[in-house]
Design a binder for these strands. Structure first.
Length: 363
DNA sequence: TCTAATT
């Protein structure tokens, strides 16, 4: 079922070719008259990457096409979590073209990746994503694009569909314009308006930024991440380029052995420090030397009441010694935080999170 | 009534 939904969504997803601008040259980096390198024919943006794909796997996949000048998987600054997209800049424009032709539409786990030319980075293309609700259920993605295209160039559009009836519009969607001012004009022109023949007016506003999650949403995401480890990933790798071995090795095997809440509960009776004083003390291991208290607040705060965090630092260098402690008031919230965050990847590290035991404390 | 599109 989820496969069916994925395919429907990917069918509805617009595949926009951004297309390089300017004149083509046969080979090598293109140098414009002002001396700056022109990346428009070599630099690609890759969207809809699987959440757990690493920088190394990303580079390996795109490096199979040709020599890479640089590449970057974009990650959340605080948690290090992948934001699901990245950039690849090839040395040779021909390889960029080849990557689009061969890797665009590749299915990885539950995702269908999109590979297209990156637009030149600029402030004017940011925050150009609109959230649209109240759409007639009969309105197709194409209809919606037609309605919005009078205000500017559409980069992506999507209508969300019901998960169970697979294909029935939920009446809500997204439109990303090339430029923010185009999005603003679309709000002015369409918010509160009835599309031709529609009974109700639509609402058009800027979409929430998915990387700025509420605590509840973060918890949900982490919980789902943890749950996915038990069931294992879905499997529909294509066999193209013999990358299946690489990808299966990376994705097909559980990397961590998670602990369940039940096993935590049984642990609780044995050697926990217990809720003496302020609350439940949690041991966090494998923090980076640069880790600070804010990281611990960000990680544990979504799970409930946190009364104290502490990063243990070296006395002379003031760098984190690799571990810290978090105190949480309520047992259930602490147990959920541990079950979700143990094995969690923070940047390029895998955290070990557990209740602080008396053993670790003994003199 | 909210998906991971700008380094």
């Amino acid at each position: 079922m989820s496969r069916m939904v994925t395919q429907i969504i990917s069918t509805m997803e617009t595949q926009v070719s951004n297309g390089p601008s300017g004149t083509s040259l046969p080979n090598g980096p293109v140098i414009s008259t002002n001396g700056a390198t022109d990346d428009s024919k070599t630099n690609l943006i890759v969207n809809y990457l699987p959440q757990n794909m690493t920088q190394e796997e990303f580079k390996s996949l795109f490096g199979s096409i040709g020599e890479i000048e640089s590449c970057k998987l974009v990650r959340d600054k605080i948690t290090g979590q992948s934001l699901g997209y990245g950039f690849v800049n090839y040395v040779d424009p021909n390889d960029a073209d080849k990557a689009i032709n061969t890797l665009n539409g590749l299915k990885l786990q539950t995702k269908t990746i999109k590979v297209s030319y990156a637009r030149p980075s600029s402030a004017s293309i940011r925050d150009a994503n609109l959230y649209v609700s109240g759409l007639p259920k009969t309105m197709t993605q194409k209809d919606m694009e037609q309605l919005f295209s009078q205000y500017g160039r559409i980069i992506t559009s999507r209508i969300l569909v019901d998960q169970v009836t697979a294909g029935i519009s939920r009446g809500v969607g997204f439109i990303r314009f090339d430029k923010r001012n185009e999005a603003e004009e679309a709000i002015k022109g369409l918010n509160g308006q009835k599309p031709l023949g529609a009974a109700e007016p639509i609402t058009v506003k800027f979409a929430n930024n998915p990387s700025q999650k509420t605590g509840q949403a973060l918890l949900t995401q982490l919980y789902q991440t943890a749950a996915r480890r038990y069931t294992g990933p879905l499997h529909h790798q294509t066999q193209r380029f013999r990358l299946d071995n690489l990808l299966n090795a990376s994705y097909g095997v559980k990397r961590f052995s998670p602990i369940t809440i039940d096993s935590m509960t049984s642990l609780a009776g044995v050697n926990l420090t217990g809720p003496t004083g302020a609350g439940w003390c949690i041991f966090v291991y494998n923090l980076s030397p640069e880790a600070d208290e804010s990281v611990l607040w960000q990680l544990f705060g979504p799970f409930g009441a946190v009364t104290n965090v502490k990063v243990i630092r070296d006395f002379t260098t003031n760098k984190c010694k690799g571990f810290g402690f978090v105190t949480m008031t309520n047992y259930d919230e602490a147990a959920m935080a541990i079950a979700s965050l143990n094995g969690y990847r923070l940047g390029d590290r895998v955290l070990q999170v557990s209740f602080k035991t008396s053993k670790q404390h003994k003199a």
